[in-house]
Design a protein around this nucleic acid. Sequence first.
DNA 1: TACAATCCCCACCGTGGAACCGGGATATAA
DNA 2: TTATATCCCGGTTCCACGGTGGGGATTGTA
Lengths: 159, 159
Amino acid sequence: MEPGYNNVSLPKSSVLELSCKSEYALLALTELSLHYSKGDPLRICQIAADQNIPDRYLEQLLATLRRGGFVKSQRGAKGGYLLTREPWKVTLLDVISCIEGFDAKSKETKSPKSTEGAVVADVWKEVRQSAESVLENYTLQDLVDKRNARQQVDLMYYI
Amino acid sequence: MEPGYNNVSLPKSSVLELSCKSEYALLALTELSLHYSKGDPLRICQIAADQNIPDRYLEQLLATLRRGGFVKSQRGAKGGYLLTREPWKVTLLDVISCIEGFDAKSKETKSPKSTEGAVVADVWKEVRQSAESVLENYTLQDLVDKRNARQQVDLMYYI
DNA sequence: TACAATCCCCACCGTGGAACCGGGATATAA
DNA sequence: TTATATCCCGGTTCCACGGTGGGGATTGTA
C-alpha cells in the first residue's frame, strides 16, 4: 500500500483545534468591522500592526477572503481592504470555511468498509456539526461587541 | 521575528477534524470491547486484520493506550492486548485525549495580548468544549451497540 | 532447553500543510 | 512621474501524520 492515508473515513487533519490562520483572519475581519462605518479602506500593514500579525502572511489570507467574497480591495495609493458585507451578516463559520477551505471537503466520506468505521464516522460527523453550530451562532459583529464589552471591563480594572 | 509561530492563543494544528490515529484507536478498542467478556487477549495482527489497520502503526497506538491505562498487554506466545476497564466506563474523549495527547495541552492559552485575541480565544474554547462534550457522551460500549444496531440493518437490507 | 510467538522500543522516511519571507508586476492617487 | 499600495508567484523551514524496519525482551509450549 502506498504511503499516505489508509482507507478511512477521515481526510487528513489533526487535533480538535482551530488554526492560527483562522484566528488571523478573524482578527483582521474584526478590525475591518470596527472600521466598517467609515468608508475608507484599511491597509494590510495597518491591520497587521494593530493585531500583531505578520503582514506578508496576512496578505495571503486577505487574498483568500477576497476570493471568498468577504472583502474587496482597492489597489494603489490610499488603497487597502474593505468589508463587502455587513458585519452582522457574516458568521464565523462562513469565514473559517473559506479560510480552511472545507467547502469542497464535505463530500469525502470515503465509504468506510467496516461497520465499525461507519459508526466512528457518524460520531466524527456529530462532533464536527456540534463545533460548526457554535461557529454559526457568532457573527463578526458579535466579536466587535464582545471586544467592546471586554474593553469596558479592562478599563474598570485599570481604574 | 523568528519563523514558526507568532504569538496567538492557538498552538499549532489545523482544521476541525479528528485524526486517523484516533479513528484507528477507537476501532481497535471497539474490537477489544467486543472481546471483553472472554478473558483471552487479542493479538495486534488480529485487530489490524479485522479493522484494516496497518499493524505496525497500530502497535504504536496500542503502546500509547497502554501507557494511558486503557489496555494491558501480555507478552510472549498467546499474548496480546486486553481492555483494563469496562467498555461502558471509557468515554471517547478519554481515548482521544490520550491519543492526541492534549491533556498536557490545556494550559497553553498563551495570554493573547490584544483584546480581540482574547475574544477569539473565548470562541475557540467554546468550540472545543462543544466538541468535547459530544465525545464525552459516548463510551466504547456505545460504539459496540451502534455497531450491532447497524449490522442488524445491514442484514435486513441483505435479505 | 529450544523455539516460536508475541509484544517492546527506537529510529527512520515521505508527504503535506502551516507559517512565513522576497521580489517583481500592476494599479492608483497626488 | 512618483510614491503608495495591492497582486502574484515563488521559495523556505518546521513539524505532525501515516507508515515501515530492525533488533531485543518476554513467555507459552514442545
